[in-house]
């Protein structure tokens, strides 16, 4: 490690000390490199500014209460983001709750249990889940998963859990199949490979000496995983979960197919709902340029950007802080 750091410094110094001897091409090339770097910075700033500016009229019209108002009525032109913000956060949280134990298990399997020859192919297969386009998850969810959930999952849950006070409210209503829970489950499958891949990367960076010490005092494989490996990588693993959450928040096509697209608030996980992204995709065709609805949709987009930016930024900081040390 030390050798490569000094090598890096040497390289930087070398580049800094290197003065092109009267050539015109080098300053142009270096200038282009810098310009591309700055371009990416400017791009993000531009995206934020454009979304904010586009949604500003809606914010002026409805005030800051736009963010939590649960009214979404295109007929009377009263708009609020409350239902969609709730749906976005709830579906993403369901996704993380479902994906997290699975990721812990799969990462344990890949790092400790799987025989060497199987490790790579299984890891790659799980990564392929991340490559499948969102719209394919949407179609699969809509045509395959939704009918199954409506027929086999929801009726017994409604029957058993529905009558329980308090929690019961989460499991009431007709078994439609499409709804918040189904969206959360599909999202869980979509973010699973991202969380798992980062878990595996973190777990592989645990110093073998630490694990061997634990084995040496007689710990089982699971005990080492739970008491040594996971605590060692905790910070970065929280970052990995945040990355999954960030991905789930902004997922569009898959959710649009399976969430039912109802812009009203409902306590039940089985009821159709909407996320910010699904609402934008769904209602955009009916919003004409300059209309209040379009501005409300753009403001929704800005809110989504702010939420996912915070989550993704946190994720990045947590992951980096750990992998560096």
């Amino acid at each position: 490690m030390a050798a490569s750091i000094s090598g890096t410094e040497a390289n930087t110094a070398l580049i800094a000390a290197h003065k092109p001897t009267g050539r015109i091409s080098d300053p142009i090339f270096v200038g282009l490199l810098w310009a591309s770097g700055i371009f990416v910075l400017v791009l993000l700033g531009f995206i934020i500014a454009m979304l904010f500016e586009g949604g500003l009229p809606a914010l002026r019209e409805f005030g800051i209460s736009f963010v939590w108002s649960t009214m979404w009525n295109p007929v009377t032109e009263r708009f609020g983001a409350g239902v969609m913000v709730y749906g976005t956060v709830l579906s993403a949280v369901i996704a993380v709750i479902v994906a997290l134990p699975l990721s812990f298990g799969i990462a344990f399997f890949l790092t400790e249990i799987a025989p060497g020859r199987l490790r790579r192919p299984i890891g790659v297969a799980i990564q392929l889940l991340a490559a499948i386009p969102s719209i394919i998850y949407g179609m699969w969810g809509f045509f395959v998963v939704v009918p199954l959930i409506a027929a086999y999952v929801q009726p017994p849950l409604i029957e058993w859990l529905g009558p329980i006070p308090l929690i019961g409210a989460l499991f009431q209503g007709p078994p439609l199949g499409a709804g918040m829970l189904t969206a959360g489950l599909i999202l869980a499958l979509m973010i699973l490979p991202f969380i798992t891949a980062m878990f595996v990367e973190v777990l592989e960076s645990v110093p073998p000496m630490l694990k061997e010490s634990a084995y040496g005092v007689g710990a089982t494989t699971y005990e080492v995983y739970r008491n040594v490996s996971v605590p060692y990588g905790r910070t970065a693993m929280v970052g990995a979960v945040m990355l999954g959450l960030g991905r789930a928040l902004g997922e569009t096509m898959a959710v649009t197919f399976v969430i039912g697209n109802a812009t009203r608030m409902s306590a039940s996980l089985f009821a159709p709902g909407a996320t910010i992204a699904s609402t934008i995709a769904n209602e955009f065709p009916e919003a004409s340029i300059g209309s209040l609805k379009l501005q409300a949709l753009l403001q929704l987009g800005f809110i989504l950007f702010v939420i996912s930016f915070i989550v993704l930024a946190l994720s990045r900081l947590l992951v980096r802080s750990k992998l560096k040390s």
């Binding site: 770097g37 700055i38 990416v40 910075l41 791009l43 993000l44 531009f46 995206i47 454009m50 979304l51 500016e53 586009g54 990355l243 960030g246 991905r247 928040l249 902004g250 997922e251 569009t252 992204a277 934008i280 995709a281 949709l297 753009l298 987009g301 989504l304 950007f305 996912s308 930016f309 993704l312 930024a313 990045r316």
Partner: peptide, 22 residues
């Protein structure tokens, strides 16, 4: 730049669409 690029990498793609629309 690296941080911003990581955010762009995972940013909701629908917002990129809205941005280009604007």
């Amino acid at each position: 730049v690296r941080f911003v690029n990581d955010v762009l990498l995972s940013a909701p793609s629908i917002l990129i669409g809205l941005f280009v629309y604007q």
